[in-house]
Structures are given as structure tokens and as C-alpha cells.
């Protein structure tokens, strides 16, 4: 069965590397980068993008609103789509 896939885009310059998104991610997608942004913060990034399900838990707890979340859902099977 096709599963939902997700991805996040982090506003690297706005990220303060607080690590809350890392703790909130149920599929352990996010890590803090070894690199730093111009303010010196280790910003969040997708270390395991394939595992992302687009649940937006990271964005929910992100105090700086720097995470945008996308979610791809498989198209419903034709017979399901014709009901109703």
C-alpha cells in the first residue's frame, strides 16, 4: 500500500537550533546540522527525508515558525473514488 510522504522546508536563517522539532518528530527525520547559520545556530534539517510523513509535529512545536510542511498523499484507488 502506498504511504503518505512528507517533506519540510526550514528557514535556515530564522532557525535558532532549539532542538524541539528533533524531539517532536515521530519518525526521527530531523537533526541539527553541523553547519551554522549567520547567527551561529546549528539549524534543523532533514537527515532522513525518506522517513518524513508530513505530520507537521515539528512545525507545531517550532517557536520560531521556520518550518513549512508538505505532504503528498497517494491518489485514492478508482473504486474508492467512485463511491457516493
Amino acid at each position: 500500500m502506498a504511504k503518505a510522504r512528507g517533506a519540510i522546508v526550514v528557514d535556515v536563517e530564522g532557525c535558532k537550533g532549539c532542538d524541539l522539532c528533533v524531539g517532536a518528530c515521530p519518525t526521527h527525520v530531523i537533526e541539527l546540522s553541523r553547519k551554522v547559520n549567520s547567527k551561529g545556530y546549528h539549524f534543523a534539517y532533514m537527515e532522513h527525508p525518506d522517513a518524513c510523513i508530513g505530520c507537521a509535529h515539528c512545525a507545531m512545536v517550532c517557536p520560531d515558525s521556520v518550518i513549512t510542511v508538505y505532504r503528498w498523499k497517494p491518489a485514492p484507488k478508482p473504486r474508492e473514488a467512485t463511491t457516493a
Binding site: 508538505y70 505532504r71 503528498w72
Partner: peptide, 23 residues
């Protein structure tokens, strides 16, 4: 619908129609 979830590229996911959360 032509994609299978396992072969999706990030560019296929990060599209306006798939947006679920933004500031």
C-alpha cells in the same frame, strides 16, 4: 497519481498543492 510513494523526489512533494503547514 503517476508517482509511487517510494520513488518520489523531494521536488514532487514540495509543491504548493501539498502544503499542509506554513507560518
Amino acid at each position: 497519481a503517476s508517482h509511487d510513494s517510494d520513488t518520489l523526489l523531494l521536488e514532487d512533494i514540495i509543491r504548493p498543492e501539498n502544503l499542509v503547514f506554513e507560518k
